[in-house]
Design a protein around this nucleic acid. Structure first.
Lengths: 152, 152
DNA sequence: TATTGTTATACTCTATAACTATA
DNA sequence: TATAGTTATAGAGTATAACAATA
């Protein structure tokens, strides 16, 4: 009866133990995030990257982007203008509503996004590679749990 | 011979598998970090929080802080001025070198830091609590591995 | 008249260059 | 003369308020 681990079933952890795990995980995630951001921040500033990522999911209007990114419409106008200027975002008129503008990624933007993500993943890949197979296996299982936690 | 997991020993993962795990972990960490930051960002802006955290490690001069935070000395002057104004940082003259200034946290700053960290940890604690004991156990093991990865 | 988006203006954080005080 | 820190000034990003075009 080990305290936990290596078994198909585990005893429930004490609230204090859960808090300790949560605190350590939280801090580790924030540190990793900072390191990764620092690694790839020289191509596109964070707020521009965030908008590009949203537009990769689907074309959107400036108003939608402002709401999603929790930023004011004038700020989004400015950010979008910078991205259009850089040739990363294309503007097209909405055929059914003349007030709206449809924003979408250019091929160049898709290339830039791929490159940034590749570099970010590489930072983490190098570190996971250096772990033992047992540690890698724990992280394999943790990855799907943390994805679920992050997505909630 | 299971592909991986539940055993004391694991087979080495393929490079592609390692990359996939790293990518998923990286993304999850960044999402969690963003959520946590959003949760507690209303007390002190990020750059001020970062300086307070550095000063909690040890009292430092403005120049040291500027170098650590990779920011220009004038920017640090400004950030420090705001923190002094808010009563979170105290300035004392260096007795051995009249050009330098020693910055340290006030008791109020320690209280604010505790409160911010408490709220951040709480966000994560709530989510870890909702997992099964088996999942919690995986995260318990993952936490120490990720801490090591983050600290490198 | 309401909605979408932009322009006008101001505040904050960042930077580089110039300046003051001390070593 | 070199170093620590501040002040002067300018460049992004954010915001609110006012405006133009369309529904």
């Amino acid at each position: 009866m080990t305290p936990a681990g290596r078994r198909g079933t585990s005893a429930a952890l004490s609230p204090a133990a859960v808090s300790a795990i949560a605190g350590e995980l939280r801090l580790a995630c924030m540190r990793i995030s900072r390191r990764v951001r620092f690694e790839s921040t020289h191509e596109v500033p964070p707020h521009q990257f965030s908008v590009l990522a949203r537009l990769q999911e689907a074309p959107r209007t400036p108003g939608e982007l402002a709401e999603i990114e929790r930023v004011s419409p004038p700020s989004m106008t400015r950010t979008v203008a910078a991205l259009v200027e850089r040739g990363l975002v294309a503007r097209t008129a909405d055929p059914s509503d003349g007030r709206q503008v449809i924003l979408s990624l250019t091929p160049e933007a898709r290339r830039v996004l791929r490159e940034i993500r590749r570099r970010r993943d590489q930072w983490m890949t190098v570190r996971v590679k250096s772990l033992t197979p047992e540690e890698q296996d724990i992280l394999r299982q943790a990855a799907s749990i943390l994805s679920r936690v992050a997505g909630e």
